[in-house]
Design a protein around this nucleic acid. Sequence first.
DNA 1: ATGCTTATTGACAATAATATGATTTTTAAA
DNA 2: TTTAAAAATCATATTATTGTCAATAAGCAT
Lengths: 145, 145
Amino acid sequence: MTVIFSKKCELAVQAVLFLSIKEIKQVWTAEEISKEMMVPKEFVSKMLQILTDSGIVGSKKGKSGGFFLAKSPADIRLVDIVKAIDGMEVFETCVLGFPGCSSDNPCPVHDKWGKLRDDAFKMLSEETLEEFKEKTTKKIESLKS
Amino acid sequence: MTVIFSKKCELAVQAVLFLSIKEIKQVWTAEEISKEMMVPKEFVSKMLQILTDSGIVGSKKGKSGGFFLAKSPADIRLVDIVKAIDGMEVFETCVLGFPGCSSDNPCPVHDKWGKLRDDAFKMLSEETLEEFKEKTTKKIESLKS
DNA sequence: ATGCTTATTGACAATAATATGATTTTTAAA
DNA sequence: TTTAAAAATCATATTATTGTCAATAAGCAT
């Protein structure tokens, strides 16, 4: 089961976090990223291509090409990645799956879930990747062992 | 994309909420429930069978048979249904998909997500279906129009 | 007892999500 | 200018989820 975000989104977040702790504009190939994140190369490049289209990541074709962050980590928030890969649906749909859930016609947990959803949105949009750098470095370091 | 819970779980919750606002021990066939919830009959009976195994719902075969709540609504919490259908994984896994996420080896949002996850768990376990009755009735009424 | 109605069970089809592979295009370096 | 490396694109395979069907077993009413 997916935990809120799709596997695609999870991988995209991981790959961007990887890029965020490297020198800006330095390029990394899909293969290098795939090795460090331990996911298939093709999956990495597919996700990074989507993020390239949405301007978060940049790419350079040909020899000595690769992917790099198109913006400073201080200008990227996790929610940008979620938006690009999964869209905002997760923040809009009824958690119990009822049709037409709204404050006029709420499901039994509508109000409480609304608050949680807002908190989740905040979590993903308040901090930038810059502020995550230290934690990100530690986490990605730990993947190697 | 699944919004936290699987479709199976969503439907199971809806079906149990349906039963919770009816007279206790009164039986409803899978077909009746499926019509009111606007989902396929077979899907309803499959989910209710799982819930029968876990003791939340009771069933009666044969003519004038059907499904009914096996306990009082005051003894059922949404989390019981989630547990029976999807399991508790959603409350245990890293939201960003990192392996081995823990307080010793946290992902960048581990602490914040942990709090949110606890709140979600509380939301599903603090109140019983008894306390939802009024809201449930309104919501299910609204599905007919 | 008989037949109808219902849950139960297991198989299976359809769809969506995930993962992989092959080909093409672009680019830089030799 | 040739070659190799890399993204980009298109196609395919695999897996998981969701939804449907058919056969069976059980129980009620007549």
